[in-house]
């Protein structure tokens, strides 16, 4: 009897102790999760992919009616602003004509390059069309979830394009889902070319709608309206996918670029399977990976 009472007293003491320190324990657990995430990024990656795979069917179920509703609202809005829409389209037409010129120029240049000896065409690119089933847009991330994954041939590091231009790259891949990191994300760094001058640069996102052009050899050569395209350095991206145009050239090295892709109304995107395993492995920006020798030669 006495033993049982003692046991009960001890048990209740333990219970009150746990209750008293439960907040502390939970806080410690949260910190523990953060530390584990920092120390073992592979584990976290697996957990992320698992969570994505579990959530993506639910999200897809949500995404369809939401997309339909959004389309209806957009239709109504367009109806209300037909005149402005017309003006916008005319303006866009002008812009597209400029694009056409650019395309011709690129084509010519390509022609010339093929004429050179030793030029070898890059691998053929194929496309995987995907629906965007989830936004991962917050104050800290710019990205989206796709409904295709490893089963469809998606791999980490592949380019994601829209009709207008480059949207981002694949950061994480699950069996039936993948996460895109938009070019505007703070972790996005892209090797690019300035189309007019063929100068190399790095295009970095900073979570704002515009991109920052850095590591230029000479900033002076950049003008407003210059188009920025992918350079293909690093191997995972095809050469010459348009990304954006320069909208602001300040003093120092602050060159701002407006991306062509309209991230607020993306519904379908294409994943470019370029046939080259990129050097972008886990998608972390912390360690600048050395380019593998095989890619450099190309």
């Amino acid at each position: 009897m006495a033993i049982r009472d003692d046991f009960e007293v001890a048990a209740s003491q333990v219970r009150t102790a746990v209750q008293r320190f439960s907040l502390g324990l939970l806080v410690i657990a949260a910190f523990g999760a953060m530390l584990v995430g920092k120390a073992d990024s592979v584990l976290v990656e697996h957990a992320r992919v698992l969570a994505l795979d579990l959530a993506s069917p639910v999200l897809e179920a949500i995404a369809r009616p939401v997309a339909a509703a959004n389309r209806t609202i957009a239709d109504l809005k367009e109806f209300a602003s037909l005149r402005e829409e017309n003006a916008r389209l005319r303006e866009e037409n002008v812009r597209l004509l400029a694009w056409q010129t650019a395309a011709r120029r690129l084509e010519n240049e390509n022609e010339r390059m093929r004429g050179l000896a030793n030029f070898r065409e890059g691998p053929e690119a194929s496309f995987i069309t995907a629906r965007i089933v989830g936004d991962s847009v917050s104050a800290y991330v710019r990205g989206a979830l796709l409904n295709v994954g490893r089963k469809a041939g998606v791999a980490s590091g592949q380019a994601v394009v829209t009709g207008e231009g480059l949207a981002g790259r694949i950061a994480e891949v699950g069996e039936n889902s993948a996460r895109v990191l938009f070019v505007t994300d703070v972790n996005s760094r892209l090797p690019v070319l300035i189309e007019r001058t063929r100068e190399r640069a790095i295009l970095a996102g900073d979570n704002s709608p515009q991109l920052r052009l850095t590591l230029l050899q000479s900033v002076a050569g950049v003008q407003r309206g210059d188009r920025i395209v992918t350079s293909g350095h690093g191997g995972s991206f095809p050469v010459g996918i348009p990304i954006g145009e320069v909208v602001e050239t300040g003093e120092g090295s602050s060159v701002r670029v407006r991306p062509f892709a309209d991230f607020s109304r993306l519904e379908f995107v294409r994943v470019v399977d370029y046939g080259v395993s990129g050097l972008v492995g886990g998608g972390s920006s912390s360690a600048p990976a050395a380019p593998p020798a095989g890619v450099r030669i190309r």
Binding site: A30, V36, S136, R142, S285
Partner: peptide, 15 residues
């Protein structure tokens, strides 16, 4: 896990 991009701390929302 669902929201975070690469490098973001996992568990800060939990905290």
């Amino acid at each position: 896990l669902l929201l975070g991009g690469p490098g973001a701390p996992v568990g800060v929302s939990a905290l």
